Computed example of a mutant assay.
Amino acid sequence: MKHAETVTFGGSALDRDGALRDDADALAAAARHPAARAILFWRGKPLIKNENPASLALLPMDHPVLAQASLEGIYLGKEDGAARFACDLSAWEPDDLDAESLGGFLDPSEQHHPELPETMVFAELRRVMTWLTPREAELAATGKAVFGWHESHGFCARCGEKSQITQGGWQRKCPACGASHFPRTDPVVIMLITHGNNVLMGRSPGWPEGMYSLLAGFVEPGETLEAAVRREVFEESGVRIGQVSYLASQPWPFPASLMFGCAGVALSDEITIDPVEIEDALWISREDMMQVFAGDHPKILPARKGAIAHFLLENWLADRLD
Results as ranks from 00 to 15, higher is better:
residue 321 L to A: 04
residue 119 T to C: 04
residue 90 S to T: 14
residue 99 A to W: 11
residue 283 W to P: 06
residue 284 I to D: 01
residue 306 G to K: 14
residue 76 L to W: 03
residue 9 F to V: 08
residue 61 M to R: 12
residue 257 S to W: 10
residue 160 G to Q: 08
residue 305 K to F: 08
residue 66 L to V: 03
residue 141 A to L: 05
residue 255 P to R: 09
residue 171 Q to C: 15
residue 57 A to Q: 10
residue 36 A to N: 11
residue 257 S to M: 08
residue 161 E to N: 11
residue 205 P to C: 01
residue 180 S to H: 14
residue 248 A to F: 00
residue 127 R to W: 02
residue 219 V to S: 02
residue 290 M to V: 07
residue 13 A to D: 13
residue 109 S to H: 14
residue 174 C to A: 09
residue 172 R to W: 02
residue 317 L to T: 05
residue 205 P to N: 08
residue 298 P to S: 02
residue 244 V to Y: 00
residue 171 Q to R: 15
residue 213 S to E: 12
residue 72 E to K: 11
residue 191 M to I: 07
residue 191 M to K: 05
residue 201 M to N: 01
residue 315 N to Y: 05
residue 110 E to R: 14
residue 84 R to N: 09
residue 199 V to M: 04
residue 134 P to I: 07
residue 310 H to I: 00
residue 45 K to N: 14
residue 305 K to T: 06
residue 102 L to I: 08
residue 299 K to C: 04
residue 208 P to W: 10
residue 294 A to P: 00
residue 278 I to Y: 01
residue 67 A to M: 11
residue 145 A to F: 05
residue 49 K to H: 03
residue 152 S to R: 11
residue 132 L to A: 05
residue 219 V to Y: 02
residue 17 D to Q: 08
residue 149 W to S: 07
residue 302 P to R: 10
residue 277 E to T: 01
residue 160 G to W: 06
residue 21 R to K: 07
residue 307 A to F: 13
residue 173 K to W: 06
residue 220 E to A: 10
residue 153 H to L: 02
residue 215 L to K: 02
residue 11 G to D: 07
residue 177 C to Y: 06
residue 311 F to T: 00
residue 298 P to E: 09
residue 68 Q to A: 15
residue 157 A to E: 13
residue 200 L to I: 06
residue 138 E to S: 12
residue 132 L to D: 04
residue 191 M to Q: 14
residue 199 V to E: 02
residue 108 P to N: 09
residue 150 H to M: 12
residue 305 K to D: 00
residue 157 A to M: 08
residue 93 E to F: 10
residue 208 P to V: 08
residue 202 G to V: 13
residue 250 Q to T: 13
residue 74 I to D: 00
residue 25 D to H: 07
residue 15 D to K: 07
residue 207 W to D: 04
residue 90 S to M: 13
residue 168 G to M: 05
residue 196 G to Y: 07
residue 179 A to R: 10
residue 316 W to H: 06
residue 208 P to L: 12
residue 234 F to V: 01
residue 159 C to R: 13
residue 212 Y to D: 00
residue 39 I to C: 11
residue 194 T to K: 04
residue 222 G to H: 12
residue 106 L to K: 06
residue 322 D to S: 12
residue 258 L to F: 05
residue 287 E to D: 15
residue 303 A to I: 00
residue 53 P to E: 10
residue 19 A to C: 02
residue 252 W to A: 15
residue 276 V to M: 07
residue 255 P to Y: 09
residue 115 E to R: 12
